[in-house]
Amino acid sequence: MSTQTAPAGSLLTAHDLRKAYGPTAALDGAHFSIHPGEVVAVMGPSGSGKSTLLHCLAGIVTPDSGTITYNGRELSAMSDGERSALRRSEFGFVFQFGQLVPELSCVENVALPLRLNGTKRKEAERAALHWMERLEVDDLAKKRPGEVSGGQGQRVAVARSLVTGPRVLFADEPTGALDSLNGERVMQLLTEAARSTNAAVVLVTHEARVAAYSDREIVVRDGKSRDMEPAL
């Protein structure tokens, strides 16, 4: 099935995205769509353009051409400030590494997006603790990122990505730096939490094991995307 026409009821869609870094084309006519509550895995080999697709969908990077529509609004028509506000309030992010602020304690890290939205500290930390409990890391609240394990840190990052109640969660290789056991647990908690809030999840991975947590998979190769046929 081609993704050239966005299915009805899509929350986030992209059409004919092109993006080049210098002479290298990272995206070359990619398409994408996702519904609320849906988990879509974006797969592909290294350098295929999957992270660039995620960055474009999240409004972090502006594509050279093509359109991205979120909830009926054209992303390219928004200013940088509006896109930042969108990311703060409607989107959540989990990256492979380097995302927790090392100086802040874990609970402060989780509360950070709320505080950026203007929520008072105590209230933000209360909400943060709630999500840390759900991600089973509430006992790390006072610890700094440097004092916790990789798997624990990643669960803290997931809690942070969900604390604002995002409608879309972008996860770029969220288990890339974890062993399989920790990776499985993080994916389990992430997808459960997302489904409980009806958040859509854009999951960039190159691991089939991780992609197995998704409802649907698309493959990006040489900057082009296509839906993966479901296994018979």
């Binding site: 930042s84 506000a85 309030s89 989107f91 990256f95 380097g98 995302q99 997006p113 990505s161």
Partner: peptide, 16 residues
């Protein structure tokens, strides 16, 4: 650099 980019990615204002 990486941390700064991640903070901006999830919507931190540059002026912050």
């Amino acid at each position: 650099r990486k941390l700064l980019s991640a903070l901006v990615a999830f919507g931190t204002r540059r002026r912050t």
